[in-house]
Design a protein around this nucleic acid. Structure first.
Lengths: 138, 138
DNA sequence: TTATCATCTTGTATTAATTACAAAGTGGTA
DNA sequence: TACCACTTTGTAATTAATACAAGATGATAA
């Protein structure tokens, strides 16, 4: 059985071509796409694709814990199919979102508190190495 | 000299009644308001206040490091006049944003990396204690 | 104190991400 | 193969945020 068909079936999500394509896209593209990017790329192969379908599919995947939704950008949601705990850096110049491979060491302490924690997000914002170099070159 | 007048002058921000009121509101209200909340509260005393002015003022304060802008909510920016490093919890049921008094221990390591870090955000999302209790009571 | 000018405030219009919704289409099951 | 619930599509509506122009105001210098 196809890898992505299995993922959907294992999560009781009805299998449709659109969902398979979104899942495949996220798995193949770890560069933290936004909805517009996912939509415009998939529309190339399937011109009748609706943006609403992309939103609906991403909602389903999120509800089942198959994608993370990052709120690191103040203007749009960013999607990450890597579920393992890691943090992110946002370059405020070029907009790139870059993985930072660290994990919050306080999770155990916080889980002991009164709130129920479902998501942990570590965001760093600034200027990425590449943009710093470009600025120096000027 | 008034406390808020001094803050603005020290930061080379021209003193206006609107800016003083926004500054005072943020200092008096540590409950992490959004723009709508700040605007609607201040409009009570100053009915001619424009939302654009609130946006402009918050931008100035942010540029001068006098407020933090939190992107913990997927739909809107949240403002925090407490600049000291601390993290935040978002209740996905009631929308409350609650301070978590811990500080990222990795900052030194990350600052040694190639990117320039200007902001550090630690966000936890889930269900707050109060909403958990309400759910149990049902 | 007053004139001046740059800056600020206001209100409206616009942009852009997201959500709502209804009609047509499709996947899974009996 | 027929059925039904769910999905997809396209359009309309919502909402946060931004752009912009005209009028108002704060700081400075004469």
């Amino acid at each position: 059985m196809d890898k992505y068909v299995k993922i959907l079936k294992d999560n009781n999500i009805k299998v449709t071509p659109q969902r398979l394509e979104v899942l495949r896209y996220l798995d193949d593209n770890k560069a933290h796409p936004n909805v517009e990017k996912i939509y415009s790329e998939l529309k190339k192969k399937n011109p009748s694709l609706s943006k609403t379908t992309v939103y609906n599919t991403l909602d389903s995947l999120k509800e089942h814990g198959l994608v993370q939704v990052l709120t690191i950008s103040p203007t749009e949601s960013i999607f990450d199919s890597v579920i393992s705990p890691h943090h992110h850096f946002l370059c405020k110049i070029c907009g790139a979102v870059i993985d930072i491979e660290i994990e919050c060491p306080y999770i155990e302490d916080i889980l002991k508190g009164g709130h129920r924690i479902d998501e942990v997000h570590g965001y760093f914002k600034g200027t990425c190495e590449e943009c710093l170099n470009k600025k120096e070159a000027q």
